[in-house]
Every structure is written in structure tokens, then in C-alpha cells.
Design a protein around this nucleic acid. Structure first.
Length: 807
DNA sequence: CAGTGAGCGAGCTTCCGCTTGACTT
């Protein structure tokens, strides 16, 4: 039996440390927090000084039991959870729950998992820091009070099952605000003048700083240049240096993996977790840019060996973020001499990114020489500017270049091309000059990763919660991650070449979006409600403010219950007042009146989502019912126009008659469809649902029947609900409601009913509730539909069309 | 899976931060 039990938070960490410490130590993991506030409303007794009721959740019972047993047998228990607020609280919960004794318990901390760091920690034990624990309790209690008092207000005033919280509600607000900025934005066009000079490889480009909003002015400029001579007025050369970025934190890793690899933040974390568990990288949930001395030395050795001494520069990075708690190192490879790893493609690519970024962070600056040439025009006082950049030393760029969110913007291309040798006074031959109309761009919508960046800047959320927060706001239906098609827009180009000016109109696609976050109507309504009644909570500085208080508590300068009381009393009064006085929020907006009937047309949120209503609600005096139509995907209450709303009432519409039944056309969740004899037939994209003719509709129905017939391979006489079908991935068995795979090598047509039944019995039922069914039966019904919206599953329906079309 | 848009009012929903599995396509 080991004399010492050492408890850390993560099992992977436990394994590593066990290797450092030898036989006298058993190292175990608590798997994070082992206790939490009870789920019910009596978790915090407000009248009794915010006394909390904690419990060990079901999935932690086993761990706690094991730790308890080991603790009893050990001579000394070492609590080695992280050195931050949450970590200190974990140690305290362990102390309380395991029934530890002061005399046989030691608290130790380290910021890096290296042997010297661990040994140093063991030589310098301390006691649990109760100020820090109190700061965590304040954080926990505040979040619970906010979340569990605000959410029920939303259930009453907006819709059941909604949620609000210190972090998620601000995240939604950022997205709603940004969407409104984009909607408000009007693009302004201006002509940019650019010219090319020189021949072949010596050709270069120069631009005019001024922009012309009027075409006449741009044209005048070009006309003036027809007979002008061009001369180098001045040349300036100056050195330019670029430094590498700091090694990754959780937030910067998520951003770069999104930009460079196209990963969602949750994918990044899943892949990083795998790399961490297999010992390839250090811990992936960190806000620190610090590297251990061991790491710095190892990186240096790698760089010197691979690239030479002059490529190495020792650098120590300081974390910018004020809220950083720095319990870990930056994310880096465990061993710098491992350049690539085994595993699937995403693991390889993410590892490579982490390796390069960490190595580059210890490399020398890149050096450039930037040349600026001003070119005079004999007929105008303005000058053209040409920039050229020559790299003198690549430095860290040998391995890594950080990208930024504006990389897609290629309007400024070739900005750092090379210039040919030039001299002041030199006359230049102009090849071509253009005046191109360019539009200003609206602020960019958030991606998952740029939202994380913004939240981190506001000190909202922690490395362990960025990815879950982004899932939450999508699962609640406040936000959707979507593609949007752009529209074409014309722009004018004037070209001066060989002494004459030509004008042409070109077109570009604008406003197209990929994987951007859009607010939904419910997101906007909830946000506006919270902004109106709970300004203080959704204020962007709310978290920063309470964090300051938590710090004071951690330093022992303030009593945590005092702080919470000062917050809670006014907050709770606001909650009560809002419940009493606020109207139900539906986001209702009046669009105008119907051009023919003169009836009022309005949009609002109903039980099944946003819809348009024509006419007033029925009353005793006026029993006529209003007309309703749901908004379509991509339409919003805030932006829908009267014409678009009227358009929605053109469907469903009768198309004709076939086999003694009506055919109607409408648009559903999965696009336009024809309905005939209570069956549905999807409309191909090329056909506008408003223009479908009777023969077209019949053709579509017949085609679907043929496909269905081809799909059916065999029906069993024993049970007509058992069939062999041809699916997207070949033949499969449909056994009542269950889909069953056919084992390889079996001929589908030769299967007997008994064989099929045996296969079906061996196939576990897949019901959507299955996953939540056991652990949280109550949550199953509510969560199953929400889960459908997860982005990972979106791909399937999109691809479905392809194989079908081929036939 | 694709019509709906009221209410007799049961019983439910919900927060943020620490950690990993165990699920399916």
C-alpha cells in the first residue's frame, strides 16, 4: 500500500505524474469537480446567509467512493488540483467530502507537468486557501442565482424551456447586435485608381490614395493621364520586422484551427483532447501563454539543430487577458523533437499546427525591407504610390505564419510584391490604368472562433466553457450557424490603355456567408427582453465587474456573502417587478395593411415559431379567423418586408387533379413539395413552386413512384412491415421501425425471415431518446429535437440529393 | 417530417466550470 495519495483533476495528468513520483505515491484523478449545488431551487438558502446545499452527482459517486477508500489507507493525502479559483474549490470539496484531516492533508500546486516542477511543489506544501475557495463559492452562487431566477422569467414572459445566464446571454447579445449593424449598414461605392508600370517580370503596380465617389471625377483623372508622363518623385526604404505570435491558448488554438483547418471549436477541442490523452501535447484548456523552462530549452535545441543558431531567440510571453488564471502552460507539444504524430488526419493536422506555433514562438524575427515609391503625374498634382517588400531574413516565417480573419479579403493583393530597381527622376512607361468601383464592407458576422475571441477579450467565460457555451446558444435556438447565399452586384470599371478609355460593367457576388452565426427571432426577442429589463446582467462589463469583486474576496479584502447580498437584493427586486409588470414578449411588428382587403398584417413569435398574420384575432363580434403563414428559413421578423410577407400566402396552392385527388404545392421544412393523396413529393430546385403546372406535378409523382419501386427489393409474407430496401449505402433491412444492416457476404434476396429476425434482434434499438434515456430520462423529450440541430449532422441531408440525381 | 398560432392549467424546463466517457452516422 502506497504511503501517499496524490489527487489531481485529470487522469492523463495523474498517469504522467505517477511516473515521476515512484512507488511511494498513488496518483489519482478527481475528474474535475466532485460536488455541485443540488439541482433544486433550495440549493441556496438566501435567508441563511446564502448557505449552500451540495451533493455528489450520480456519475461521480464511484470516483468519490474509491478516493475515500484510498484516502483512508494513505498516511498523507496531497491535494494537487489546479492553482486557480476552481482548483482550490475542488481541493476543498475533496477535503470535506472525503472526510480528510488537517494533519494528514497537504495542498500543493504546480503550473506545469514537469518532474522538477512536481518535486518543487512537494517540497513546498501549504494549506487550503479559504479566501480563494470563497471567491469560487461567490462565483458559483452568483451564476446559479442569475441563471435560475432569470430563466423562469423567460418561461413566463417568452416561451418555456428557455435559458439565460451571465455568459450565454452576453454571447447571444453580441450576435444580435452585430446582425443589426449588418442590417443597418449601407454600402458606399468609390472608385479606386491603380496603374501598372514596366514590362514582364519588372512590372509593378501603383495606387492612388484618393478615392472618387463620382464616376466623372474618376474619368477625369484617367482622361488627364492619357498624355501624361510618369516619373519617380521619391524613393524611401526602411526596415520592417515581424515577431512570431505567442504559443497557443485554448482561445487562439480555436481561432487558428478554425481559420487554417476549418474546424468548429468543439471539433478542435475533441481532437486536442485525443492528443492530450495520448501524451502528445500539454493540457488544452488553458489561458496561459507561458512555456516551462524545460519546454523553452527543448524548443531551443530543436531550432538550433534544424535551422541554426541565428534562427533562435529566447522569448517569454506575458498573458494579456486580465482574467487569466494561468494554472497551466500554454498548449505545446510534449516533445519538440516529435514533428508529426500517428492518428487520424485531423489529429495530424492539429498537432502540426501546435508544433509549428510553439516552435515559431521561440524563433527570431522576420526582417523585411520595405520600399515606397511615389510616382508623379505631369498633368495632376496627386501622386501614385507603389509598395514593395523584400524579405531579408525569414526567421520564424520559416515554419509558421498566423492568419487573420480578413484573409479572405483579397482586394489588397500584391501589396507586398517586389519592386524593380528604381531611381529618383526615372521616367516610367504606364501600361494600363484602371478606375474600379469598390464597395465598403459591413462589419463581419461572428464565426464560432471569432465569438470566442470576443468573449475572451471581454473576460467572459473560461477555456473549459467556450465550446460548450457556443453549443448551448445554438441548442437553445438563439443562434444558428449557417450558410447564406449572396447576391450579384454590378460595379463599373474604367480602363485607360493605349491612349483610350473604355468603360465596362462587371458583376461580383456579395454577402455570401459560410459558417457564420446568425441570431434567430427567438434569440432576438429574448435578447431585447433581457436588455430592457436586466440591463445590468447583459452589460458587456458585468462579468469584468464581478471578477474584480471575486479577486477582492480571493485576497481576503471582502466577505463573499456581503458581495453576493449587495448584488442579489436589487437583482431579485428587478426579477419580481418584471414578473409583475412586463408584458409577454412576442417581437410583434406591424408590416402594414393588405393591398386588397385592407386588413392588418403583422409578424410575431408564436408557439411554433415566427409567423405572419393577416387580420385581427377573432372576437365575438367579428368571428372571422385571421390567416397565418410561417416565416421561411432565412427570414426574420425584424427584416421581412410587406411584399415578402404577402408572398407567403401564395402557397399552398392547388396545382391540379390526378387520379381523382387534388394536387397542392407548398413549401415545408425541407423545401417545396407537392402533396397528393396525403403523400409528399419534393420539388426539384429548378422548378419555382409558384409556376408548377399540372403535367409537371404528375411527372414528379410518377418519377418518385418509380424510384420507390426500385428501392424495394423484397417484402416478407410473414410480416409486411419487414422489407429489404435499397438505400443510400446499398441494401438494408427495415424491420418494422428498425433499420438493420445486412452482414457482408450475404445475398439480400436469399435471406429468410428467420435470419432477418435474428439480425434485427441483435441490433440495438436506436431511438433518439436512447442516449439521454438512462442518465436523464426527464431531459430526453426536450433535448432530442434540439440535438438535431447540431452542426455535425447537417451534412447528411445536403448530400442526399446527389446520388438520387444520378439515376 | 411538411396543416397549426387558443388555453381548464399537470409538471417540466434553467446557470457556469472543472473533468471524461459512451453514444451514433
Amino acid at each position: 500500500m502506497a504511503k501517499n495519495l496524490l489527487i489531481v483533476e485529470s487522469p492523463a495528468k495523474a498517469k504522467t505524474i505517477e511516473g515521476y513520483l515512484g512507488k511511494d505515491f498513488t496518483v489519482k484523478s478527481s475528474y474535475g469537480h466532485i460536488r455541485d449545488l443540488v439541482k433544486s431551487d433550495d440549493a441556496i438558502n438566501i435567508a441563511s446567509n446564502f448557505e449552500q446545499k451540495y451533493e455528489v452527482p450520480a456519475d461521480k459517486k464511484q470516483i468519490v467512493a474509491e478516493l475515500k477508500k484510498l484516502a483512508k489507507e494513505a498516511e498523507m493525502v496531497w491535494l494537487a488540483s489546479d492553482e486557480d479559483r476552481e482548483g482550490e474549490a475542488i481541493s476543498w470539496h475533496l477535503f470535506e467530502t472525503l472526510g480528510l484531516k488537517d494533519a494528514t492533508t497537504k495542498r500543493i500546486v504546480f503550473h506545469e507537468i514537469t518532474k522538477p516542477a512536481i518535486m518543487r511543489a512537494i517540497e513546498n506544501p501549504r494549506k487550503i486557501d479559504y479566501n480563494l475557495v470563497n471567491a469560487q463559492q461567490a462565483r458559483r452562487v452568483l451564476d446559479r442565482l442569475v441563471g435560475f431566477e432569470l430563466s423562469p422569467v423567460l418561461w413566463k414572459k417568452v416561451k418555456p424551456s428557455l435559458s439565460a445566464g451571465r455568459v450565454q446571454s452576453v454571447a447571444v447579445r453580441l450576435i444580435v447586435d452585430r446582425e443589426r449593424e449588418v442590417n443597418k449598414f449601407t454600402a458606399e461605392a468609390a472608385f479606386r485608381i491603380a496603374a501598372t508600370f514596366g514590362k514582364g517580370r519588372e512590372a509593378f503596380k501603383a495606387e492612388l490614395a484618393e478615392r472618387y465617389s463620382q464616376q466623372e471625377d474618376a474619368e477625369k483623372f484617367l482622361t488627364d493621364c492619357v498624355d501624361a508622363t510618369f516619373k519617380v518623385n521619391s524613393l524611401e526604404t526602411k526596415p520592417l520586422r515581424r515577431s512570431p505570435a505567442a504559443p497557443f491558448t485554448t482561445s487562439t488554438l480555436q481561432q487558428e484551427a478554425s481559420r487554417k483547418l476549418g474546424f468548429s471549436v468543439s471539433r478542435t477541442m475533441q481532437v486536442a483532447q485525443k492528443l492530450y490523452e495520448s501524451g502528445k501535447i500539454t493540457y488544452m484548456r488553458t489561458d496561459s501563454v507561458n512555456l516551462s523552462d524545460t519546454a523553452i530549452n527543448a524548443a531551443q535545441a530543436q531550432i538550433v539543430r534544424a535551422y541554426g543558431e541565428k534562427y533562435h531567440t529566447l522569448r517569454k510571453y506575458k498573458t494579456k487577458s486580465a482574467s487569466a488564471q494561468e494554472a497551466h502552460e500554454a498548449i505545446r507539444p510534449t516533445y519538440f523533437d516529435v514533428h508529426t504524430v500517428d492518428g487520424d488526419n485531423s489529429e495530424k493536422r492539429l498537432y502540426e499546427l501546435i508544433w509549428k506555433r510553439a516552435i515559431a514562438s521561440q524563433m527570431s524575427e522576420a526582417q523585411f525591407e520595405k520600399t515606397t515609391a511615389k510616382i508623379g503625374i505631369s498633368t495632376r498634382k496627386e501622386e501614385l504610390t507603389a509598395n514593395g517588400e523584400v524579405m531579408k531574413f525569414d526567421g520564424f516565417l520559416k515554419v509558421y505564419l498566423e492568419s487573420n480573419d480578413e484573409d479572405e479579403d483579397n482586394t489588397q493583393d500584391e501589396d507586398n510584391a517586389m519592386l524593380p530597381p528604381l531611381t529618383v527622376g526615372q521616367l516610367l512607361n504606364m501600361n494600363e490604368m484602371t478606375a474600379t468601383e469598390r464597395y465598403s464592407r459591413p462589419p463581419a458576422r461572428y464565426t464560432e472562433a471569432s465569438l470566442v475571441k470576443k468573449l475572451e477579450e471581454l473576460s467572459i467565460g473560461r477555456p473549459s466553457t467556450y465550446a460548450p457555451t457556443i453549443s448551448t446558444i445554438q441548442n437553445r435556438g438563439y443562434v444558428v450557424k449557417e450558410e447564406r447565399e449572396g447576391r450579384t452586384r454590378n460595379f463599373r470599371v474604367l480602363t485607360l490603355k493605349a491612349g483610350s478609355i473604355t468603360k465596362e460593367q462587371r458583376s461580383e457576388n456579395t454577402g455570401a456567408e459560410r459558417n457564420k452565426l446568425f441570431p434567430t427571432d427567438i434569440g432576438a426577442v429574448v435578447n431585447d427582453f433581457l436588455v430592457q429589463y436586466f440591463q445590468g446582467i447583459v452589460d458587456f462589463n458585468f462579468t469584468a465587474g464581478v471578477e474584480k469583486k471575486f479577486d477582492e474576496i480571493a485576497q481576503g479584502l471582502e466577505e463573499w456573502t456581503d458581495m453576493i447580498r449587495k448584488f442579489y437584493q436589487p437583482f431579485h427586486i428587478e426579477v419580481e417587478n418584471t414578473l409583475k409588470t412586463a408584458d409577454k414578449a412576442t417581437g410583434e411588428r406591424e408590416l402594414g395593411v393588405h393591398p386588397e382587403s385592407g386588413k392588418k398584417i403583422s409578424v410575431r413569435i408564436g408557439r411554433y415559431g415566427p409567423f405572419v398574420q393577416v387580420g385581427e384575432n377573432a372576437t365575438d363580434e367579428n368571428p372571422e379567423k385571421p390567416l397565418y403563414a410561417s416565416l421561411r428559413a432565412g427570414q426574420m421578423i425584424e427584416t421581412i418586408s410587406l411584399d415578402e410577407a404577402l408572398e407567403l400566402f401564395k402557397l399552398p396552392k392547388k396545382v391540379g387533379f390526378y387520379e381523382d385527388k387534388d394536387m397542392t404545392v407548398a413549401i415545408g421544412k425541407f423545401g417545396p413539395y407537392i402533396r397528393h393523396n396525403s403523400a409528399f413529393y419534393s420539388l426539384p430546385k429548378e422548378i419555382d413552386p409558384l409556376d408548377v403546372t399540372e403535367p409537371q406535378a404528375i411527372e414528379i409523382i410518377e418519377a418518385k413512384r418509380v424510384r420507390d419501386a426500385e428501392r424495394l427489393i423484397k417484402v416478407f409474407d410473414e410480416n409486411p412491415e419487414v422489407k429489404i430496401l435499397n438505400g443510400r449505402w446499398g441494401p438494408y433491412i427495415e424491420f418494422e421501425k428498425l433499420n438493420v444492416k445486412i452482414p457482408k457476404g450475404k445475398e439480400p434476396l436469399e435471406l429468410t425471415f428467420d435470419e432477418v429476425k435474428a439480425l434485427a434482434d441483435a441490433t440495438p434499438a436506436t431511438g433518439k431518446k436512447g442516449r439521454f434515456g438512462k442518465a436523464a430520462p426527464k431531459a430526453a423529450a426536450a433535448k432530442a429535437p434540439a440535438a438535431k440541430k447540431t452542426p455535425a449532422k447537417k451534412k447528411a441531408p445536403a448530400k442526399k440529393a446527389a446520388p438520387k440525381a444520378k439515376k
